[in-house]
Design a protein around this nucleic acid. Sequence first.
DNA 1: ACTATTTATTAGGCTCACCTAATAAATAAT
DNA 2: ATTATTTATTAGGTGAGCCTAATAAATAGT
Lengths: 228, 228
Amino acid sequence: MPVEREKYSRAIEDYLKIIFELLEASGRVSTKQIAEALDVKPASVTGMLQKMSAFKPALVNYRKHHSVSLTPEGRDIALRVIRRHRLIERFLQETLGFSWDKVHEEAHRLEHVVSDEFEKRVAEVLGDPEFDPHGSPIPTRELEMPEHSQKPLSELDKRERAYIREVPDEDEGLLLYLEEVGVVPGARIEVLERSPYDGIMTLIVMGQLQNAVLGPSITRRVFVEKKR
Amino acid sequence: MPVEREKYSRAIEDYLKIIFELLEASGRVSTKQIAEALDVKPASVTGMLQKMSAFKPALVNYRKHHSVSLTPEGRDIALRVIRRHRLIERFLQETLGFSWDKVHEEAHRLEHVVSDEFEKRVAEVLGDPEFDPHGSPIPTRELEMPEHSQKPLSELDKRERAYIREVPDEDEGLLLYLEEVGVVPGARIEVLERSPYDGIMTLIVMGQLQNAVLGPSITRRVFVEKKR
DNA sequence: ACTATTTATTAGGCTCACCTAATAAATAAT
DNA sequence: ATTATTTATTAGGTGAGCCTAATAAATAGT
Ligand SMILES: [Mn+2]
Ligand SMILES: [Mn+2]
Ligand SMILES: [Mn+2]
Ligand SMILES: [Mn+2]
């Protein structure tokens, strides 16, 4: 049975979402990171963290100058928003024909206003998709995040082959470029070259005429998996 | 060419929309009416009217204790929001299978956050529909409101026949009832009886087993047209 | 025309989510 | 260890959009 849920503000939903994502990516979160990700000042983040930790039930565990983590309640909200975001991205792409570089921003706005009914129907229409257009897993109806055993493209050695699994979703220009060179989820690639100092990698992308040349700021955020 | 548009707040969009609708329905708008429609206090409406009339360009013409009207700019915003609202209602119904009593509330939230791109694609997918699920006309891309020559059901005499054109969209309970008795846009009806004092009307609805009995608070807000 | 009622406006506050500037704590460099 | 740098927190403000209570204007009733 769906729990009787309070309605939290857009701001709080975005904070919880980004905290979840930062924790998932690197295991820890700093005030500064949150501030940069949300494009607000660190002072604002401190204020919001204090507020969210004072909520009943608390949404975050906060020890000043030390750690930030999510309470079960906060995690739940984060996962709900992430589920909506990713479902909406898929929906925009499949049902409305949005290109993959445009879905993120639109979903970022819609994720805060759609009802449970909307979410349910979108999931139905799409047939409960497992991934968003950038390859990120969509939390299930029960808010379980599917495990994805993948590693950064930057860790592949020369001659190694793999499948692209997930690409960063916020940078529209990057997405346009990645699409052009065929570095999209599901693509099969082989590392043709990697320079040891600057980390630039040259990839053969199956089915593409040209090779893809990517710097480390990209390859560290593109994830691959060995098996299909 | 789409004009470079400022982004107005949700609150302002809702004020302008409701002012437009009240003006359209009865030719004039009072502070009290707006307050009731938006579920805020009259003092808040006064404040907002003053703010909107002080905008450059102004969104409303406001003379205290006297009239409120929309400037061309204000009217434009109202029509944009109304177009979105009604397109979204159709979309929710047709593409996501929402029932007609649930679409209004959802659209009321979505109308403020969807992009021009979203609006354009929804219109395309639906094939530029002319009416929302309750029979209200959808302003065109050029923001022209289609004329609809219709009159209240309450003005029909006994024996008169007509087609249902438009029903009020805010009251979910009423919508469920109207659907049950078949009083939906396009339905052909005949006035079987109307009591002169309390205004209660009994209708024969083509294709329905039972007659529909409706009080004046409803029949004044249901619109009909003679020709098909 | 005067009075009662209804409607609208002003004045003053409140909450939310942000800001800047000043200060303090943690971390890195010498 | 001391100092410099980076990061985080506090203190005090701002604007949007709402509120209540007090007052004023418009309208209706006699
Ligand atoms: Mn995204
Ligand atoms: Mn968001
Ligand atoms: Mn509606
Ligand atoms: Mn609205």
